[in-house]
């Protein structure tokens, strides 16, 4: 497969993630779309790693997964805490930092 196909596939997945972040009101779904965008980048990175025959990019993908796991743990804890306070995960309600 030419490298362009992988480029377009991961670009499509990334754009779908951006649409989801802008479109949904559930904070958990927004968070899941961020995970989708991270995975699109991972896919492209592995494809470029194959193209250049360099293993460093795959190590970077491994570290991206590590950071994503830590991020999910903290982020979901924040969402659970918010849910306890305001009994909702609607991001239109969670905008109190503005006031």
């Amino acid at each position: 497969m030419p490298i362009q196909y992988y480029l377009f596939l991961s670009l499509a997945l990334f754009s779908i993630g951006i649409m989801g972040v802008l479109m949904r009101r559930n904070a958990i779904i927004v968070f899941m779309c961020i995970e989708l965008m991270l995975n699109a980048v991972n896919l492209l990175m592995v494809a470029f790693s194959k193209m250049y025959g360099n293993a460093d990019a795959q190590i970077f993908v491994f570290f991206i997964m590590v950071v994503a796991a830590a991020e999910v743990a903290v982020g979901l804890a924040i969402i659970v805490m918010m849910y306890r306070k305001v009994h909702s995960v609607d991001i239109n309600i969670l905008n109190r930092l503005k006031h």
Partner: peptide, 15 residues
């Protein structure tokens, strides 16, 4: 200007 001849195959034991 990507390397157009670069085909991503399942060969090589890089991963």
């Amino acid at each position: 200007d990507l390397n157009n001849k670069a085909m991503i195959t399942s060969e090589g034991d890089l991963g």
